[in-house]
């Protein structure tokens, strides 16, 4: 038996801007649902009306507790109080490594871990429980690399996008799942309030950039990038000898930093 709490936020589709499950939060829930049996507590701090909450229930979660608060509030204390009130206390707190839709700073799990006095491990893709109350975690690093870690319970884990994909959300369970709303008092997020907010406009990167990393901006971006005419930019070698061709490829890869030196 292992009791697990999961923090779920509302994501935002990059193209339509519509509310959806936040991709890494959904992966955190997926991991929680695939751990050995035990209590699963799912918490969301924010508006209880977001349709995206049902998407989490549709994954087979029976109940989701919403700490109802207005936008722009700092959910840390409310979540902390709610987590402390859980009895028995959970031994694992799971969440995505980055929300999408709020401040998106990835700070919340750290603040909670610090306040609870728990260890925290970010960017986890796999979790196995040992018999001695510890767990083996696997962290995703850049370029498909992996790092294993051991940590004793209780701990906080944030989930990386490379973790197993979340199961799809189904209509039936989403409709049946319970949303329990608890109104809480949350202070205004002053740091956020001090910031100027405006719509994001893409600006070109200043530098020659390598891989844009895992997250891509949706199918449209991919299509645009895939189909945009690149003619005239590439270098073309017609009918070189195999050795010339090999050297050209080698030099090119070297230049890209793909080859061990």
């Amino acid at each position: 038996m292992v009791d697990v709490a999961v923090l779920l936020s509302v994501g935002r589709h990059p193209v339509s801007g519509r509310a959806r499950r936040a991709p890494t939060d959904a992966r955190a829930l997926e991991l929680a649902l695939s751990l050995p049996p035990g209590r699963r507590t799912a918490l969301h701090a924010g508006s209880p009306d977001s349709p995206a909450l049902r998407d989490y229930l549709g994954m087979g979660l029976a109940e989701l507790t919403v700490l109802a608060m207005a936008e722009g509030r700092d959910p840390t204390d409310a979540l902390l109080a709610r987590l402390r009130a859980l009895s028995p206390a959970p031994s694992i707190l799971l969440t995505g490594n980055r929300a999408e839709g709020g401040e998106d700073s990835g700070m919340l799990p750290y603040s909670l871990a610090h306040a609870l006095g728990w260890a925290i491990v970010p960017d986890v893709v796999a979790l196995t429980l040992n018999d001695d109350g510890s767990a083996e975690l696997v962290q995703a690093l850049a370029r498909g690399q992996r790092r294993a870690l051991r940590v004793a319970m209780p701990f906080v884990v944030t989930i990386h996008p490379a973790a197993p994909a979340p199961r799809p959300s189904a209509f039936g369970p989403a409709r049946r799942g319970r949303i329990t709303v608890e109104a809480v008092d949350a202070p205004e997020d002053t740091a956020l309030a001090a910031c100027a907010v405006r719509p994001w406009r893409d600006r070109p990167k200043r530098l020659t950039v390598g891989a844009p990393g895992g997250g891509s901006g949706g199918a449209l971006d991919r299509l645009r990038a895939a189909t945009e005419a690149k003619a005239g930019q590439g270098r073309l070698l017609v009918g070189p000898t195999p050795d010339e061709a090999a050297r050209a490829i080698y030099d090119c890869l070297q230049e890209q930093g793909m080859l061990p030196r």
């Binding site: 193209v15 339509s16 199918a219 299509l223």
Partner: peptide, 14 residues
């Protein structure tokens, strides 16, 4: 299906 729900297009276009 998820893209369809979020964007009303199967391929997640605007």
């Amino acid at each position: 299906l998820e893209e369809l729900r979020a964007t009303d297009t199967p391929s997640g276009r605007a």
